[in-house]
């Protein structure tokens, strides 16, 4: 589905945040990007829908270099949910209708209610002002808003970091459901090892912009021989440790 090849990202002030990143995301997979703060997880995620420019290096979506896809089309195909729900002023319905409205399509109330149902929200929320919904509900509205564009991939930038444990578990269940029911592919940034273990098929561990390890989530996290992964899993700051690019589980 997604194929990242030799991606490097340097900011305008010359700081290199990502160094020669390569990995693939299979259709209907849930992949987590993990790493300490400042490791480049969100930067990497944002290159997948060109909120950051993936250059030098390339990102392929279904065999197409994403820089050759019109950017509006790319972003409708590769949706994104942010750390804060980032909802727009207005009602829940206004938010859900936003993406189709950009193409002059107006979702009916029934279509909006169906989208809310997809994310486990009741119909009566439709006309509620977004200032009056809870944090967990707001994040679900953000999912419904992204789903309205009928994407094939959803990028999740720490969507549960501001939620309580119950709301977090509900979002995790929602993502698995969406994968199973709609066949969506997910790339999920998290710094939470337990969450990666609960939700993802494969995990990429990023340290200082370098792929420290990449592979099957269970194998990677259970490998007691990989010191860096184990120390990260124990909550240690691994950003000062030397990183062997690729890691023992790398299988690009």
């Amino acid at each position: 589905m997604l194929d990242v090849r030799h991606l490097t990202y340097t900011t305008v002030d010359g700081t290199t945040l990502l160094k020669d990143i390569s990995f693939q995301v299979a259709p209907k997979a849930i992949v987590t990007l993990m790493g300490p703060s400042g490791s480049g997880k969100s930067t990497l995620l944002r290159t997948l829908n060109r909120l950051n420019e993936p250059a030098p290096g390339t990102v392929w979506l279904k065999e197409r270099d994403i820089t050759t896809i019109p950017v509006v089309e790319l972003r409708r195909a590769v949706g994104m949910v942010f750390q804060s729900a980032a909802l727009f002023d207005g009602t829940v319905a206004d938010n859900v209708r936003y993406g189709p409205a950009l193409l002059k399509q107006r979702l009916s109330d029934a279509e909006c209610v169906a989208l809310l149902a997809q994310v486990g929200l009741p119909a009566e929320l439709l006309e509620r002002n977004i200032g009056l919904v809870s944090g967990g509900q707001a994040q679900r509205v953000a999912f419904a808003r992204a789903l309205a564009n009928q994407p094939s991939v959803l990028l999740l930038d720490e969507p549960t970091s501001a939620l309580d444990p119950a709301a977090t578990l509900m979002i995790e269940q929602l993502v698995r459901d969406l994968r199973d029911r709609l066949g969506l592919t997910f790339v999920w940034v998290t710094h939470n090892v337990a969450q990666a273990r609960r939700v993802s098929d494969r995990t990429l561990l990023l340290v200082n912009g370098i792929v420290a390890d990449w592979g099957d989530t269970g194998h990677l996290l259970d490998d007691t021989h990989h010191d860096l992964v184990q120390r990260f899993a124990l909550g240690e700051d691994v950003s000062q440790l030397p990183v062997q690019p690729g890691g023992p589980h790398a299988n690009p």
């Binding site: 909120l51 509006v72 972003r75 949706g79 994104m80 942010f82 804060s84 980032a86 950009l102 992204a146």
Partner: peptide, 12 residues
């Protein structure tokens, strides 16, 4: 963040 959320939904 709101601006980028709109861009991520396909806004110009």
């Amino acid at each position: 963040t709101q601006i980028e959320a709109a861009l991520a939904l396909g806004a110009t």
